[in-house]
Amino acid sequence: MDPDVLEFLAEKQRVNIIPTINSNVIHLISGDVGPFRAGLPVQVPLWMAVNLKQQQKCKIQAPDWMDVDVLETIKDREKVSRNFIKMPSEHYMVEAKLLLSAAPDDIPRTDEIRTIIKDIWDMRMSKLRASVDSMMKESGSYAAVDNLTIMEINSIRPILPHALDQLYRLKKAARMHGSTQSQNTTTFNSRLTITPFKS
């Protein structure tokens, strides 16, 4: 999946903004938003928050988890846990990227937040690579990927599904070969060593 598409998916996530303008309720197709009263927080989709911020019509309130202390706790839990822990947001990377770049002046300690999120991401990715590696070695044919966020899943696509598909083909070929060739493993092995360009 294209990273743009990931961003598109994440942009329907809701965030709180503090508008600097007044407006009535906006009747969007996806639901009503507002009313906007200057200074009063209101919940809007992420895409709208970024757009309004660019027009300087609002301040963005960082989501609860986008806070140095909360993220440190998550980082520590991720460090001690063998499995992936549940992230506070399904789209934490996209949200962080969009909000931190659109509204660095509204969110305190942006640099620290960026570093911690990157640390968490790196930790999870190395866990992910290790588990993909062991899955291939055990030649598993299915696996639970609980608590992985969409972006993390996307990072092992298409390599993992393709690798599993090749593995499946090899297994199937070996099985078909075994049943038709009356279990003659020596021919099977010798056939494998023939280089295709020799003849």
Partner: peptide, 21 residues
């Protein structure tokens, strides 16, 4: 899984995520 005639059985919980053929 391409190995035997009958493969493993798996149960899905609500909200669980899997990679599967």
């Amino acid at each position: 899984d391409g190995n035997e005639e009958d493969g493993d059985l798996v149960d899905f919980k609500n909200g669980s995520q899997m990679i599967i053929s």
